[in-house]
Design a protein around this nucleic acid. Structure first.
Lengths: 348, 348
DNA sequence: TTGTAGGCGTTATCAA
DNA sequence: TTGATAACGCCTACAA
């Protein structure tokens, strides 16, 4: 690769010092207008591009924020990432995205990589954090070092971490209660990737509050949150007859299950009611529009970036005393797949 | 933020020189085993994390690869990114992802940011590159500086750039020919975001080769490639009766169109045939499984990373003489939406 | 096997 | 308003 143009090259060409160039390029007020213009002109002519690595080294800031998520396949996670990227960009930051593939070892490794790259802060969708002693300790250590890290999940009540998240417990609770209120007594739940503890507890609590018993046989965990796996999960859970309703931890899972039902001649919602999670666009446009629990991306990312920036700028002050937990309440969007009838011709 | 641990801190603690620490940490052979172990022990105890910014500055390599794509909403682009990220990771590289939002100005700005951050190479899904003089020049300049950049699109035949891409011309050609072979004479095409020149020319060529005339009124370009916009496009293009087939530049567009047809009482494929692009999972699981053109992500990313790494390692040699163009041939996957009948019970 | 010295490209500090 | 000088943390020579 050809040698990059440096400030020194500009300086030499003009017979001034590097310092002058540096000041001129950052449009400093305390420099002669003429020299400033000359420097900027030469910089442009030589196609000078500042080396932000060098700048970062001395300033101890990279203006890069790390983002760790389990799977890029999950539209919600990706949308969250994109949304945050936009907000960061507006503040002069870039984002470094890392996927953990639901691999707990890689998750902590990703943290190390980001720290090594000196990112100014980290967002993270943790994988099954309740059961990850190692991740927990690492996250705690990072925060203890006054290093901004924000979790986008709420399943870490004992962990002193700053968090912004949808209340998944409540989402599952609302969905399950809706189903029981419509008379369902055998309600299955399916998970992709790993069982979500919060959702699971919401589900169990709703059953209990409805006077129903929790039946572990009505829980299925499949490989990931795709259509394919939802299709598989439905075939497992519905084969033995009694189940009349399914709560799926993601909309794709729900839509895959819906497809299986149709192929088996089961009517949705008459024979099987289905509710998903996340309110993806695909759910609105499905053959049987899907009842689902919202994921408020815009609200979540707004709160999350606010929190991150306050941590970044309020170094060492009261912001750091007590981790903040920002909880966002999901709502149930009732469409056709759980029994509600659509009026003809209307696009839900 | 608390002060980070440096090699110097380890050195001081052990009463050795920084150089010893540096060598020990990189597991150099020419150092005493004992001191090496002691250094590594202390490093671990102090929770030392190497500062890759400093390392990059001296080594002139960051082990970061930039990736520019127009929209994170597009599942194919994201899958490509993820796929490439995995392959990079296996080689010790990380990825910096930037979205251009189909904004041509931001595209060149993203290039500058990546260059400034000293990434070791760049992948890019260009936006409408044929009509972007500015982007073209920039890309050419980057390559002329022996800086590895690979375009993931083929619509730049005059541009001396290394490229790995699906042959979209051929894809559109195949799809259109398939429709004409089934007797369709009024075939519309819809685009999301921007008109894709390659696809457009394939479409026109196929019409011509089938003895049909190109009718600009049967072309619609909508805001993006979502279900919503496909729904809108269908309402525009089908309102005036004559069209009997739609080719959509993306599967979500196609599925949105499908939804509109169903709501209007139009049968697919009997009244309207629909073909999409990209072969997303959603297409396989749709109410009417979608006929579509494949996007061979795995093959594409494999070839693309191979090419990038060869450019990175073969600095200054023959690799650089002539830009390489790797073209991947798409295939037509025939499902129900264009007239082919599914056998009952079979999951396509 | 280890230590010393110099430099990567930039910014910050202080003097001129 | 400018210039010299010293960092930033690490690596690569080369010397000891």
């Amino acid at each position: 690769m050809n040698r990059r143009v440096r400030q020194q090259d500009i300086a030499r060409k003009l017979g001034v010092s590097i310092n002058t160039v540096s000041l001129a390029l950052k449009d400093s007020g305390r420099i002669n207008e003429d020299t400033k213009l000359k420097v900027q002109e030469v910089a442009k002519a030589l196609n000078y591009i500042p080396n932000s690595i060098a700048r970062s080294l001395v300033q101890k800031r990279t203006f890069v924020i790390g983002f760790i998520l389990p799977s890029i396949t999950n539209p919600i996670q990706i949308e969250t990432a994109q949304n945050i990227e936009r907000k960061l960009l507006a503040n002069g930051y870039n984002m470094m995205l890392m996927t953990s593939d639901y691999d707990k070892n890689y998750e902590t490794k990703a943290l190390d990589i980001l720290l090594s790259r000196q990112v100014d802060g980290i967002f993270m969708f943790p994988t099954d954090i309740q059961n990850q002693k190692k991740s927990q300790e690492k996250i705690k250590a990072i925060r203890d070092a006054n290093y901004p890290i924000i979790l986008l999940s709420g399943g870490n009540f004992n962990l002193p971490s700053d968090s912004v998240y949808m209340n998944q417990y409540l989402g599952a609770y609302k969905a399950t209660r809706h189903l029981t209120s419509m008379g369902h007594k055998e309600i299955a739940i399916i998970y992709g990737g790993a069982r979500n503890t919060e959702k699971h507890q919401g589900y169990i609590a709703a059953l209990k509050d409805s006077g129903l018993e929790y039946n572990p046989n009505q829980v299925a965990t499949v490989g990931n949150s795709s259509y394919e796996q939802g299709y598989r999960a439905a075939s497992k859970i519905l084969r033995n007859g009694s189940v009349t309703a399914i709560l799926a931890s993601g909309d794709y899972l729900a839509l895959g299950a819906l497809r299986w039902c149709r192929e088996q001649g089961l009517r949705v919602p008459e024979d099987v009611a289905i509710i998903g999670f996340d309110d993806l666009e695909a759910s609105r446009f499905a053959e049987i529009p899907l009842t689902t629990i919202t994921y408020k991306v815009e609200e979540l990312t707004t709160r999350a970036t606010e929190l991150l920036f306050s941590l970044i700028s309020d170094q060492e002050t009261s912001t750091w005393l007590k981790p903040r937990k920002v909880e966002i309440e999901p709502t149930l969007v009732v469409r056709q797949s759980c029994g509600f009838k659509k009026r003809s011709g209307e696009l839900l």
